[in-house]
Design a protein around this nucleic acid. Structure first.
Ligand SMILES: [Mn+2]
Ligand SMILES: [Mn+2]
Ligand SMILES: [Zn+2]
Ligand SMILES: [Zn+2]
Lengths: 138, 138
DNA sequence: TCAATAAATGCACTTCTGTTGCACTATTAA
DNA sequence: TTAATAGTGCAACAGAAGTGCATTTATTGA
């Protein structure tokens, strides 16, 4: 059994051929991907299958969904060491206005945010937009 | 000429009947509104007109668009004193998981966010999700 | 004042993303 | 081997956003 198969099973996800392929795809990409990206990459596969695979992965904490403000949901593998099962990994996300790519900045945690009295914070989404390292020529 | 008409003209927006009504609606609502909300409120009006009014308001810095993670764009009037024309007013937004309403927390500015070397930050979106003051029973 | 021009609105469509229902197939466990 | 369960493929739908074009309304300046 491969590493990927083990990982999937550890998350109570049956390692079907399609799921292994999608996992591989996500692992190779260093950026967050949209459903459409996966559709392009696996032109032969059904969109619904890819969609439901992502949903299953999300539910089983294999990936996390990213709302980068483009209106299109992106997904990225959770860190191998993260404890998403227990609490959300509140790292920030960066969206490049030039190349349109979104990346997880897993090292950069979201600072504690104060909210007014009466408000209860359960979850924080922080997206920085600008120019990514590849596009800034650095 | 009313206050609203003056405000619109100050932003180079011709104060048509529809625009004045929409401005009033936005001013009375204390929460961020979606296009659909305005559609309900002005059932007789054309969606396209409402849509383009919001786009015009946004372009002319009368409202700012809010991405609260629901996938539906919300809009709220800019603060009268804000200088959106020059730089974005980086206050945070709160989305209530209970009543589904989104509010501007204009008093709560977004802290400076560090990004890795090579990345250039141009813009920050910070959304806190949880229970709002009305729903928390406080 | 009135015609020419520009701006705003109304209507009909389209695109894109996300989502669901249902039948069929493969896998698993009894 | 068979019944139950899980996964996949196909078709269709919903909602939001956006566009093209004709028509109406407002503005301008001859
Ligand atoms: Mn991430
Ligand atoms: Mn706001
Ligand atoms: Zn880039
Ligand atoms: Zn609430």
């Amino acid at each position: 059994m491969t590493e990927i198969e083990k990982t999937l099973e550890n998350h109570q996800v049956r390692p079907t051929a399609m799921r292994i392929l999608i996992y591989k795809y996500l692992a190779e990409k260093k950026i967050a991907v949209a459903l459409t990206d996966i559709e392009y990459a696996f032109a032969k596969a059904e969109r619904t299958t890819l969609y439901r695979t992502l949903k299953t992965f999300e539910e089983k904490k294999i990936v996390h969904q990213i709302d980068d403000g483009t209106g299109i949901s992106k997904y990225a593998l959770c860190e191998s060491g993260c404890n998403c099962e227990i609490e959300q990994d509140l790292h920030l996300h960066f969206h490049c206005n030039n190349c349109n790519e979104t990346v997880c900045l897993t090292e950069h945690k979201i600072p504690q945010i104060k909210v007014p009295d009466g408000f209860v914070s359960e979850n924080v989404n922080l997206v920085v937009k600008g120019i990514c390292d590849k596009c800034s020529g650095q």
